[in-house]
């Protein structure tokens, strides 16, 4: 297994579940939780962090400033 390039943190308190991050990621790193939250949507979760290239497009395109991508120090 190759080493992780980045960590992704999702601020669930700020996220409104617009799904832009899930759709924009070409590697399918982000996905949805099984259960619907109190806010009425399936929260965004990090599904395949090992596929993340650290391109930070999800962070740049998140309208709620809810995603933080941190590169792993090599």
């Amino acid at each position: 297994m190759r080493s992780l390039v980045a960590h992704i943190e999702i601020n669930q308190a700020w996220c409104k579940g617009c799904q832009i991050c899930v759709e924009i990621c070409s590697r399918g790193v982000l996905g949805y939780a099984t259960d619907v939250s109190d806010k009425g949507f399936r929260p965004i979760i990090v599904e395949k962090i090992e596929d993340c290239t650290g391109c930070i497009m999800c962070e740049l395109m998140c309208p709620d400033l809810a995603i933080t991508v941190e590169k792993v120090e090599k």
Binding site: W14, C15, K16, Q19, I20, P63, D64
Partner: peptide, 12 residues
């Protein structure tokens, strides 16, 4: 925060 914008609003 969170912002008052609708889900998916480009303003964010």
């Amino acid at each position: 925060f969170p912002t008052p914008f609708c889900s998916g609003c480009g303003h964010g």
